[in-house]
Each structure stands twice: as structure tokens, then as C-alpha cells.
Amino acid sequence: MFSALHSNKSLQLVIGLGIGFFFGFLLQKGNVTEYDVIVGQLLFRDFTVVKIMVTAMVTGMVGVHILRELGLAQLHPKPGSLGMTLVGGLIFGVGFAVLGYCPGTIAAAVGQGKMDAAVGGLTGIIVGAGLYAHAFPYLSRTILPRGDFGAQTFPELLRVNPWVIIIPLSAALIGLLYWLERAGM
């Protein structure tokens, strides 16, 4: 339906910029451009990050699956394996806590004038990503293929209708948010 729009490369660059603009605006208004808020979440002192992520998950999960039913959206789950997703994720977490920003929020933090993000963090991420590009041939022969599970979603893995997962999961996530508020966190 939107294939002409999707294949218009220069228009897509403008759309990407526009989506990023709103994303950055929201991240700044959500306060997740603050080191204190992100590290505060990792220390279980401030639950802003969890509140934003969980609300976005529930909204997006319901919305995207409705769009999919209507034929307006297709899913693009990323492939993964234990060697790739789990090991890489554990490394990411260490950097996440040491830096105190993530690749999305750091761009927003720089926009807000955070110089530790601009001078230290941003250059570090670029260097780290470049080092990975050099390590990639070795890793792709050794660790990355271990425990491969492909580009699967849970409904595909469990062979159930997506809504069988979405409805109880959304209820549980909303329950978690309710509990966090009740507990004054």
C-alpha cells in the first residue's frame, strides 16, 4: 500500500529525520537525557526509564499488531542467538552503566548540552562500533552462531495467535506500572 513511499529513498531520509525529531523531543521531555535518571534506574532508585519503556512497549505492541491485522504494517524482528544477543547484551549493559546514556538518549543528551555525552561518550561509541567492525569476522566464525534462534517472535515460537500473548502481557505490564505507582516509586 505504501510501497511507493517506502522505496522513495530521499523522502525516506526526510521521514527518518522527522521521526527522530519527535523521538528526541519525547526523550528530552521524559528526562531520560539525564545521566542521573538512567543510572538511577539501574540502581533501582528512579523508575522513569522503566515507566517510559513499559508504556511505549504496551502502546506499540497493541498498535503495531492492530496495524498488521489491517495490512498497514509488517513486523521486522531482528535475528539473534545466545552468542550474539545474550553475550552482546551483557557487554552493552556494562557500558550502559559506566557511560550512563544509551545510543539513542546520548544523541538527545548532546542536544541538551551534556558535554560528557558529546566529548566522552559519543566518541567512545563510535570507536567501540569501529572496533567491533574489525572483530566481526573472527566473532562471526566463533561466538555469534552459538545457540542461534533466528528472527523469531514469541507467537511464532509458541505457535499461537499474537493476541494470546499481547493481552495477558499488556495486562501484566500495566499491573507492574500500577504497582510501581502504589509503592511510590
Binding site: C102, P103, G124, I125, V127, G128, A129, L131
Partner: peptide
């Protein structure tokens, strides 16, 4: 931290 995170991401 950025190096570790960029590599891990």
C-alpha cells in the same frame, strides 16, 4: 563506557 557500549550494541 562508550567504547564498551558501542562494541556491545
Amino acid at each position: 563506557g562508550g567504547i564498551i557500549m558501542g562494541f556491545g550494541a
